[in-house]
Write a protein that binds this DNA or RNA. Structure first.
Length: 200
DNA sequence: ACCCAGGTGGCCC
DNA sequence: GGGCCACATGGG
């Protein structure tokens, strides 16, 4: 068995299925609202704590704007500024969630290479949206993933595309496995700092 | 007064 | 292709 897959099994054994920690993100059946929370949240949490991203989502909800359709049909993203300010980068994030929502309204199928053309959607955000909001089998690489790879000396090359291929080539190509593995990587790291459990 | 949080695009070489 | 940097808020 390969090292990457063994790592997944070890994390799964240690923490159990992450569906119980991230039920909305890892469940198979998602409502449109779940997808909106996950996809808009993925943009709002860029270089920002999930806590603050969540506050921004709540502001959108209170304003009855937590919706691709409502946001995508706005005349301008400006009215979003006071709502998402709490998540930082308030000059760029309103434009990003506006551009993404518009894109969702115009495109029935979301293709990775098309998402990457949207200003403010890079590889990690695109893959997070595809994997967790739309259940497409694409692996997400983030700083937690890189730390894990470094700790286990599994690769010298830490570039996004190389690592994404490394994981995808060594795992069964299933949405569920990709979702759970990435969730476990984050959960395992947070243990290190927050809950004093042992590093795998 | 620092440092960090599930990044990205624009420069520069 | 890789190395910097600005972008902005809230919490520890």
């Amino acid at each position: 068995m390969n090292n990457i897959y063994s790592l997944y099994l070890d994390l799964l054994k240690k923490h159990g299925s992450p569906g119980k920690y991230w039920p909305q993100w890892c469940s198979k059946s998602k409502s449109e609202r779940d997808r909106e929370i996950i996809a808009l949240g993925a943009i709002l949490t860029q270089r920002t704590s999930w806590h603050n991203a969540e506050l921004a989502l709540l502001n959108l909800q209170k304003a009855n704007l937590l919706s691709f359709e409502k946001i995508g049909q706005l005349k301008s993203p400006e009215i979003l500024i006071p709502l998402v300010r709490v998540a930082g980068f308030y000059q760029s994030k309103p434009k990003r969630i506006f551009a993404f929502s518009e894109f969702v309204l115009k495109n029935k199928i979301l293709k990775r290479e098309e998402l990457l053309k949207i200003k403010g959607i890079g590889p990690e955000t695109a893959d997070t949206i595809l994997l967790y909001a739309f259940d497409k089998p694409t692996f997400v690489i983030d700083e937690y993933t890189r730390k894990l790879i470094k700790r286990h000396n599994l690769s010298q090359n830490l570039s996004y595309d190389f690592l994404k291929n490394l994981f995808e080539e060594n795992l069964p190509p299933q949405t569920r496995v990709y979702q759970d593995f990435h969730a476990l990587i984050i959960f395992n790291q947070k243990d290190q700092r927050g809950w004093g459990m042992k590093k795998i």
